[in-house]
Design a protein around this nucleic acid. Structure first.
Lengths: 222, 222
DNA sequence: TCAATAGTGTCTTTCAGACACTATGGT
DNA sequence: ACCATAGTGTCTGAAAGACACTATTGA
């Protein structure tokens, strides 16, 4: 590490905030307030504030709270996109993250956020379309081997809802019986007392569950 | 993205260059030429040269060639480490990569590089120990589901050597029969004509193979 | 009692792991 | 002929996927 002569690149974080909207895995976008592509919908993101953010993760949590109105949600680093061409302002580094939020938690900020299907978000500035595609790939790839998809559900949910979320995220049908078997073998859930029926069209009451661990990875697939 | 007032962080890339040395998965280190921790062994890395490197990947390839004397090897982005504390120079971003190289390709630069067991690299400056641990985790986690470990072998190798590499990387014994079956099911290899025996102590001559694709990922484990 | 989901049981196929076996050719 | 490695065949158990079956209760 010699030469400190090189100009420092711009450093931002960008967040692919995913939620389930009308049964479709969707990404939350925000109109850009400033400068390049002002007013155009783009990923939630911003500069790292070197005075207040100790880490990039903290910058992400701050930005999610300030600009997205959400906190205490699942966040994971995705990949870093760094090149001379991705931003008209010059050499830039985007430390990209993805985050999952149950739709309910977005209610307060629904007026400012724009939800688009994550599969086909339409045209986006910079390389944001690529970042979203990468996030989807990660979520789908890791989904079957982790409790990540469950982070799109509220804290308490039914077994069917859990199965449905996995089906939606993975984009494939799952067998109910096998799903139950695997979930209980893996010992991921704990029952919530005071069981009651949830979905309007269920006749028989359903057991409600909650995740035991905030997040777990396994090597069997669900 | 408002406020451009915030000072820009330092941006570097750091590379966990792994190879097999005396049967042990090892990491290649380089004495730091300058400033903080000058002379101390650390990961191969450097500043992004915003004038000549178009992307972070290019910076990595340049640095591997300049400082490690290797090129045309497997490289993959690992994770980005970014915080106010990881470097005494201030808020810094390290875009970390890992790379795999067959030991033979290191010969020319063996005099400058220091090889240490990747599992226990000893004390290292900054957060480099954490970066190495993260790289190992990735290589081991992804190893069983990809041809990544094969990148530690020369282009041409025997089935036994391939199995041995997987065993070493994964740190567990594999069944010869099952390994052969899976590798041939997955259709990863092509035979190399002019087969000959390689390892000194083999009686019967062995078929030599080469990877069909530069890199592939599957969802069965080897 | 019927509709609709909750939840269980079982069969078949596939794969992993273990291990015994045969094949080869340099020494 | 020996023997260490190359390479094959087979058995067992676990898990995946498919699907039929029973259970429950509001309407």
């Amino acid at each position: 590490m010699q030469d400190v002569a090189y100009p420092r690149p711009i450093v931002t974080v960008d967040i692919v905030l995913l939620t389930l909207h009308e049964g479709v895995l969707s990404v939350a976008l925000l109109p850009r307030p400033t400068d390049p592509c002002s007013g155009v919908s783009a990923l939630i993101g911003g500069y790292v504030h070197t005075d207040e953010d100790h880490t990039a993760d903290e910058a992400v949590r701050r930005i999610l709270k300030e600009k997205g109105g959400v906190e205490h949600i699942f966040v994971e680093q995705l990949q870093t996109f760094a090149s001379a061409e991705r931003d008209p302002r010059g050499w830039s580094v985007s430390i990209a993250y993805f985050a999952l939020v149950p739709e309910g938690k977005l209610e307060s900020s629904r007026s400012t956020l724009e939800l688009r299907p994550a599969d086909s978000p339409g045209a986006l500035p910079f390389d944001h379309a690529t970042i979203i595609a990468t996030a989807l790939e990660r979520v789908r790839g890791k989904g079957a081997y982790s409790t990540i998809p469950a982070r799109l559900l509220p804290d308490v949910f039914t077994m069917s809802e859990l199965k449905d979320i996995y089906q939606t995220v993975m984009g494939q049908r799952l067998d109910q019986s096998a799903f139950r078997r695997k979930v209980s073998d893996l010992d991921l859930l704990e029952k919530v007392e005071g069981e009651k029926r949830q979905t309007a069209d269920a006749r028989r009451p359903t057991t409600l569950y909650r995740l035991k661990e905030p997040m777990s990875v396994f090597d069997r697939r669900l």
